[in-house]
Amino acid sequence: MTNSADRVAIVTGGSGAIGSVSATRLAADGLAVVVHYAGGRGRADEVVAAIRADGGRAVAAGGDVADETEMADVFDVAERAFGGVDVLVHTAGIMPLAPIAQMDLDTFDRVQRINVRGTFVVDQLAARRLRAGGAIINLSTSITRLQAPTYGAYAASKGAVEALSLILARELRGRDITVNAVAPGPTATPLFFEGKSQELIDRLAAANPMERLGTPEDTAEVIAFLAGPARWVNGQVLYVNGGAA
């Protein structure tokens, strides 16, 4: 594996809560970072500026994660700016909630397009273009185990993400590239708080033995571990939820 100062990471959804913290955390370890965004260019630029202000290397690049041409361009940006790609951290995704009986099918299709096809697209590019010693880290969710009502479409999409991750790990035999999924529990992000009452937030926070919500930093620490020293962790789903399940 190359020295961390020579390693390059693409963080999809890098303008979001977990993505931006993960990008900053990887940059602190010495990796050059491509901060990907879909619609949040301004926030991605802020993340890049903060990384550079701390002496790190970063650029922003936009694209629809489910569009193979646009995401190939993101990999091209990484190669032009930094010489190659070693790490893919795929945090981009959406989470509309509704009971299965009530969810609009167009919404269901949009969840699967972004969360499942998007993962397939970026993982396929990573499988083709990552250098030896690389790491692919996909974001799943602890909801696949907690089975909370209204999360049916989202959980279905993340179950697919886990299956893709574990199969890709085995398909990359001999390449020295690890593939894992990280599955956070309830995490204090704007996406999590949206539409929830304080009573529900408090109940979810108390559900794990640590009696608090997770933070983006909790997840970013696990991502940094998998991106760097964790070369013997491969083909796994790591649950980052304070012991909720």
Rank of each mutant, 00 (worst) to 15 (best):
A156H: 08
A169Y: 08
G152M: 09
I143L: 07
S157T: 04
G152W: 01
I136V: 14
S142Y: 06
Q147K: 14
N138R: 04
R128Y: 04
N138C: 04
Y154K: 00
R129K: 09
S165Q: 11
L130K: 07
L164H: 10
L164S: 10
G134P: 09
T141A: 01
R131I: 11
A148C: 06
I143T: 13
Y151Q: 04
G159P: 11
G134N: 00
A153P: 06
S165K: 04
T144N: 03
L168Q: 14
I143K: 03
A155L: 05
N138H: 06
L166Y: 02
L130R: 03
G152A: 11
A132N: 10
T141C: 01
A163R: 11
I136N: 05
R129F: 04
T144G: 05
A132D: 12
T144Q: 05
L139Q: 02
V161D: 01
L168E: 14
G134I: 08
I136M: 06
I137M: 00
A135V: 14
V161P: 05
I167Y: 11
S165V: 14
R131E: 09
A156N: 10
S165C: 15
I167V: 15
G152S: 13
R128V: 12
T144I: 15
L130G: 10
T150L: 02
I137H: 00
K158A: 00
R145V: 15
A160F: 08
Y151L: 12
I136S: 02
A160R: 00
R131P: 09
V161Q: 03
T150F: 07
A160E: 09
I137R: 00
V161W: 03
T150Q: 04
T150P: 07
G133N: 01
A155Q: 08
L146C: 10
L168H: 10
Y154T: 08
A156S: 10
A135E: 08
G134A: 04
S165N: 06
S142I: 12
L164C: 06
Y151E: 08
I137D: 07
L146F: 11
E162L: 13
I143F: 05
S157L: 00
V161K: 00
Q147D: 13
G134D: 01
Y154P: 06
A132Q: 08
P149C: 02
G134F: 02
T150D: 08
R131K: 11
E162T: 14
A163F: 13
I136F: 09
L168M: 14
G133D: 03
R129N: 01
